[in-house]
Write a protein that binds this DNA or RNA. Sequence first.
DNA 1: CAATAGGAAATTTTCGAAAGAAATTGAACC
DNA 2: GGTTCAATTTCTTTCGAAAATTTCCTATTG
Lengths: 247, 247
Amino acid sequence: MVAAAKAGNDRRIASEAAGEPGTLSEVAYQRLRTDIVSGALDAGKPLRLEALKQRYGLSFSPLREALMRLQSERLVLSTALRGFSVAPLSREEMKDATETRILIESDALRRSMQGGDDDWEAGIVAAFHALSLQAERQSRLSGEVGAVDMHAMDERHYQFHRALIAHCGSPRLLDLADQLYVETQRYRLPCLVGRVAGTPARDVAAEHQQIMDATLRRSEDAVGYLAEHYRRTAEIIEASTVWPSPK
Amino acid sequence: MVAAAKAGNDRRIASEAAGEPGTLSEVAYQRLRTDIVSGALDAGKPLRLEALKQRYGLSFSPLREALMRLQSERLVLSTALRGFSVAPLSREEMKDATETRILIESDALRRSMQGGDDDWEAGIVAAFHALSLQAERQSRLSGEVGAVDMHAMDERHYQFHRALIAHCGSPRLLDLADQLYVETQRYRLPCLVGRVAGTPARDVAAEHQQIMDATLRRSEDAVGYLAEHYRRTAEIIEASTVWPSPK
DNA sequence: CAATAGGAAATTTTCGAAAGAAATTGAACC
DNA sequence: GGTTCAATTTCTTTCGAAAATTTCCTATTG
C-alpha cells in the first residue's frame, strides 16, 4: 500500500559515495531483508515482482537475484513458476531456529573460551559496556517509543553476542550464527515493540552480565547461561505473540 | 576448454518431461553445482559469464541467479563488480566443514535416536543394505573405474548417513547437513578417484556397521563413532590430496 | 626506467521488452 | 446448479542489448 517509489534513474552515484553497496543486487538484498525482518513485508504474503519493482525502484534482475539469496537464508519461499513469498512465521520455526542457534553458539562459545586472547576479552567487555549504556538511555526515554532506539538497541545486542563467539575460529559457525540471528530477529522485533507496556519483569542486563562473567572466567557455565538466555527469550516471545491460525 | 555448448534453443521441453527442473534458473543451479563439486570447474578459477553462457547454453539472468544461490552455499565467491569465481579448496576449509558437519550431525543423530520410530529404523537398515550391495558390486568390478559407479556409490553413502539423522525433527539441521555434505564432497570425490590404487586398508563398511548398530541400540556411542568416521575420512583426504600452494 | 594518465577492450550489471505459465473469467453444456 | 473448456488476464521467467565498471595496454613524462 505505502509504495514510495523512488523514481528510477539515480543509479550512477552508488560507486564511491556510500561505504559499500556497489551493486543494485546488493541494495535489493539489504532492503528486502530489512523489510522482511522488520515486518514491513507481511509474513506469508506473496512477493509480486511488479510491486517490488515499484517499491524499490529497481528492475527484475537485481530483485530476483536478491530473492534467490534470501531463499537460501530461509527468509523467502519460492515455487517453481509461481514466484516468491515471505517465509511464514510459526511456533515450530521459531523453536527450531532457537535450538539451532543454541547448538551453534554453544560450540562457538566453547571454542572461543578455549583459545580466547586479550583482544577477545576486551571486545566482550567493550560490547557489554556499549550495550549497558544504550539500555540505560533506553529506559530513561521509555516514554517515547522511537523505532530508531529500537534499532540501536538491537545492534548493540547483536554486537555483544557476536563478541562472545568471535574467537571461535570457524567462519562457518560465525556465518550460521549471523543467519540465525537474523531469522530469530523476525520474531523478536515485533514482540519488543508491543511489549513496552506489559513488561513481565525480566532483568536482561543481569543475564548478560552473568554470561559475560562466566565466559571471562572460562567457565563451562557460560554455555548454560547463554542457552537459558535464548530459551527464556523464546518462551516470552511464544507467549506474547499472536500466532497465525493453525492453517 | 572443453566447452560442449548444447546449441541454445531447446527450452520449451523442460515443462513436463523431466521430474522437476521447471525453471532454467534451477537447471543452471544444478549443473553449476555438479560441475563445481565434481571438479569440472577448477577451484579458485574465475567464472566468466560469457563462458558459462556458452557452456550451458543459458543467458545471463538464470546464470546469475544460480551463482547468487551458490554463493550463499559457499561454493562460489563473488566480489562487488568483478564477478564470480569457484570457491577455493584449502585444508582449513575442509577441517572447518568437517567439524561443523560433526557438530550438526551429532546433535541430529542424538535427537533421532530419542524419538526414532520403526520407520526410521527400517530406513536405516534399508539404506545400509543398499550401500553394502553397491560396495560389493563396486569391489567386484574394481578393475574398470567408471565414474558412474562412483556416483552411485556416493549416492548410497549419502542416503545412509541421511537415514541416520532423518528423524531429528529439525528442518534446519537436515538442510545444514545436506549443505555440508555437498561441501565436503568437493574434497572427497577427487580423492576417491585417485585412491583406487594405493588404498590404505580401511574398512569403511565395518565403520558403517558400527555406527548403525550403536544407533539402533540407542547408544550414545553412535555419536562418537560417527565423528570418528568423518574425522578419519578427513585425515585421509588431507594426507592424499595435493593442496594448492600456501598462496 | 619507473610511474602515471589516457583510452581501448573485456566484463559485469542492469534494463525493458518478449516469451511462457498459471490463475481467472465467463460462456456453453450436462 | 454445477462442470468443463477456452479465452483473457496476470504474473513469472528469460532474453539480448545497453549502461557502467574494471582491466589491460600504451604512450608520455619526470
